[in-house]
Nucleic acid binder design. Structure first.
Length: 144
DNA sequence: GCCAACGTTGGC
DNA sequence: GCCAACGTTGGC
């Protein structure tokens, strides 16, 4: 089982929106990713993998945990390319739980053990990997 | 609003 | 296949 981090701008789709959707029994299709590295990460996700939900731009903090409930499949919002093929994929996720205490980007940057976190190293990547040790540490920092 | 980092595009 | 120009993301 692997761990991930997925970014969303909260004024577009926040963790609260995510929780509300899960409560209604609706999966969230993580559509709109238009970057190959991010897409490749999604294609490696397995059922039951967990991911941090990060609020970019506004808040700049890890606010909750989500779970992969469907493997990567073609993104219904993507246009086919000139060969008529849809190259963009998305996974489906559901909310698991919020972090009792959100972990801010500033805190992550101030933690030497997290200096190699892809969130910090590759700041523009919207779907990134999180190592097991990093995952555990961030959970602890978040009050879990 | 600015700027750094990085991906993509297009000319050669 | 290289590289300059340009666009986008996201932190500050």
């Amino acid at each position: 089982m692997a761990y991930w981090l997925m970014k969303s701008e909260p004024d577009v789709f926040s963790f609260d929106d995510m929780v509300a959707k899960t409560k209604r029994g609706e999966p969230e299709q993580w559509h709109g990713v238009r970057n190959y590295t991010a897409r490749n990460n999604m294609m490696e996700m397995q059922l039951g993998d967990l991911a941090f939900f990060y609020h970019s731009n506004i808040g700049k903090e890890i606010v909750g945990i989500i779970k992969v409930i469907a493997l990567a499949h073609p993104d219904s919002t993507a246009e086919p390319n000139d060969k008529g093929k849809i190259v963009w994929q998305c996974v489906d996720v559901e909310a698991v739980k919020p972090l009792p205490k959100p972990v801010t980007l500033a805190e992550v940057k101030a933690t030497p053990e997290l200096a190699n976190l892809e969130l910090v190293r590759l700041s523009r990547l919207s779907v990134s990997r999180v190592g097991e040790d990093e995952w555990k540490l961030i959970c602890k920092m978040g009050g879990l």
